[in-house]
């Protein structure tokens, strides 16, 4: 399986740095698609439980929460901001606040406040990375830890439970047969895609990641653009956390653990460059779909958890390694 991924990846990346040939371009877009279809084909043959509406809805639902983070994380990678490691803390923030504030201000205001605070965390990250020039890994790790500490202290308890069943019903419910979270994810993905590919802010984001000093010399407000990517990720992680809290009806500080890794894996496997300047939301989501389906097949096939981690780890290291190698070769 990973051979196929590697082949698809290499097709796509080679094209990117050599020729703007539409055949190669098509192959590059199709690469990940082929990999996804291959996983589906394998899953269908290997396990009867795989190819069923129920399973796909499950995959889609579990994908949606992390998918919202993926949309934000795409901006961070494209702008050349490496990664946002404050995501687990921001998700916890969103989950704890949206549940914990319910008795005081009601479910909707609680949700809004949670997202606003997540945005503030994003602004802190952005200020440190974009304006102060701190390494993104260190900045987001530090801000995340501090943010989580403050929320824990403010809420007091270790685990917070939901008190408003109506809001839980809404989030867990379906609209026209489609789970609400999936719809929310789709809307956010569309907005993210629009911003990155059609708005001047998105063009600025790609330009800043592609060549920071040239973008600066072209009157792009590079610092603000870089900071903005972290604000977007902060808000996305806040929404994600809020929905997670409402779905689970309980939130503990470690509720967001692992989401940063899942999001980064999806974005990188989708072919978004970790060095910035290249990538789109649909690509990242294709990466997410592939990883989620692969994980789903492994779970159904009874692959043990450590082995699953092993596969995903190789996938991310391989994708990043390929990006670096191709960038070096075709860089000039």
């Amino acid at each position: 399986m990973s051979d196929l991924v590697a082949a698809a990846e290499s097709m796509k990346k080679t094209e990117r740095f050599t020729r703007a040939n539409w055949v190669a371009e098509l192959a590059s877009r199709a690469g990940l698609l082929i990999a996804i279809l291959a996983v589906i084909a394998y899953g269908s043959i290997a396990n009867p439980a795989f190819f069923s509406t129920g399973n796909f809805v499950n995959v889609l639902t579990s994908m949606s929460i992390v998918g919202i983070v993926v949309v934000g994380m795409t901006f961070v990678l494209v702008v050349g901001g490496l990664a946002d490691l404050s995501v687990p803390a921001t998700i916890a923030c969103g989950a704890i606040l949206s549940l914990g504030l319910q008795p005081m201000i009601g479910p909707v205001p609680a949700f809004v406040v949670a997202i606003a605070l997540a945005g503030v965390i994003g602004m802190l990250n952005g200020a440190l990375v974009g304006y102060a020039g701190v390494n993104p890994i260190i900045a987001t790790l530090g801000v995340g830890t501090v943010g989580l500490g403050i929320v824990q202290a403010a809420v007091g308890g270790v685990i917070v439970y939901g008190t408003n069943p109506a809001s839980a019903e809404l989030v867990k419910g379906r609209i026209l047969g489609i789970p609400t979270v999936v719809i929310i994810f789709a809307v956010i993905a569309l907005i993210g895609h629009f911003i990155l590919s059609r708005s001047y802010w998105g063009r600025w984001t790609t330009a800043t990641g592609g060549n920071y000093s040239a973008a600066q010399a072209s009157a792009v407000p590079v610092r603000a653009v870089k900071a903005g990517a972290f604000v977007i990720t902060g808000i996305a992680a806040g929404i994600s956390g809020g929905l997670l809290g409402l779905t689970l009806q309980s939130a503990r500080p470690l509720v967001g653990t692992g989401y940063e890794f899942s999001a980064i894996t999806a974005v990188v496997v989708g072919g978004v460059s970790i060095m910035g300047g290249f990538g789109s939301v649909p690509r990242a989501i294709a990466g997410l779909i592939f990883v989620q389906l692969l994980t789903n097949v492994m779970v159904l096939e009874g692959v043990r958890t450590p082995v699953q981690g092993f596969v995903l780890g190789i996938l991310i290291a391989g994708a990043v390694g390929m990006d670096a190698a191709l960038r070096k070769r075709g860089g000039g």
Partner: peptide, 12 residues
């Protein structure tokens, strides 16, 4: 270094 964004098109 300062003039072009290499991976963008002429138009961009």
């Amino acid at each position: 270094g300062d003039g072009i964004i290499p991976e963008m098109t002429i138009r961009e």
